[in-house]
């Protein structure tokens, strides 16, 4: 590998995890109450994908990481202020809704077109990264759909590890049932990798990286083309927060012995 990888990461913004989510009906379909006001973060799985991409790019000289993101421009700008300090990247922004209720197929059409339009795109070097799911739609399908549209037929989901082998083949670990990984070796790019959590810690904020990234990120945001996506042929019959409130019995003054007995009895019941 002399020229390095072109790693394209697909990922958008989701509400910051502790926010209270409540659905509301809008003329455009279901949405979140106060969606514009909810603090946002880069989708956690996409973030793992981005950090893995940066890690891989740092190991393979000549590699480049491009983040392709479809979301409301203002939210993307806000989230980039946190993300762009973490890893070196180029941003391609598409200005459209990032809510979970938009249809994955419509989003995939936009994203695939944006990837195809990347200057100097070379399939022989392309690794398409993203989260295996998202914290918004949570369907785990957009990345595959984009991969199909780009005719990439080596796809992996629930990836926790990638390793470059001698000769350029890539060993990939995917999560499968029972807490195990399926190990595959793909001859090389192009490939689609939907990341689970991987094992890298979140990179520290590095203002130098931020300074360098922002010279490209701000113009990219300003250039972001409108990418309206909706709910196409989906008819939502109902959208609701499941009732999850339980009547909690709080046991305060029992001894460890008493508690242990009660718990063991509970565990043993069928």
């Amino acid at each position: 590998m002399t020229a390095g990888y072109q790693i394209v990461v697909l990922g958008s913004v989701v509400p910051d995890p502790l926010q209270t989510l409540e659905p509301v009906a809008t003329p455009q379909g279901p949405a979140l109450k106060n969606e514009a006001m909810l603090p946002a973060v880069l989708d956690p799985w996409a973030a793992h994908a981005l950090f893995e991409a940066a890690n891989l790019a740092a190991k393979v000289p000549g590699s480049k990481v491009t983040l392709v993101s479809l979301g409301p421009k203002a939210k993307l700008q806000q989230v980039m202020m946190a993300v762009a300090q973490k890893v070196p990247l180029e941003l391609v922004a598409l200005d459209g809704p990032a809510g979970g209720f938009t249809d994955a197929h419509e989003v995939a059409v936009r994203l695939a077109a944006a990837v195809k339009a990347l200057p100097g795109l070379d399939r022989g070097r392309l690794l398409l990264f993203g989260g295996w799911e998202s914290a918004s739609r949570g369907a785990g399908v957009t990345l595959q759909l984009v991969g199909e549209r780009l005719e990439i037929h080596d796809q992996f989901q629930g990836v926790d590890q990638i390793a470059v082998q001698a000769g350029g083949a890539l060993e990939i670990l995917e999560r499968v049932e029972g807490g195990k990984h399926q190990v595959s070796v793909v001859a090389g790019p192009p490939a689609v990798l939907g990341w689970a959590t991987g094992s890298l810690p979140e990179p520290k904020n590095n203002p130098q990286i931020g300074m360098a990234n922002m010279r490209q990120v701000m113009p990219a945001l300003q250039r972001a083309p409108a990418a309206p996506v909706g709910t196409a042929g989906v008819e939502f019959l109902s959208v609701a927060v499941p009732k999850a409130q339980r009547e909690t019995r709080i046991v305060k003054d029992a001894s460890p012995d008493e508690i242990a007995r009660e718990l063991v009895e509970w565990i043993s019941q069928d």
């Binding site: 339980r246 709080i250 012995d257 508690i259």
Partner: peptide
């Protein structure tokens, strides 16, 4: 857990409870 997320919350030191649970099991 106390706020409707668990059926029962035991306010206790898990080290002590687990030690006894393991012994019972």
């Amino acid at each position: 857990w106390a706020r409707g997320k668990a059926d029962v919350l035991y306010v206790a030191d898990a080290f002590a409870v687990m030690e006894r649970m393991n012994a019972l099991l």
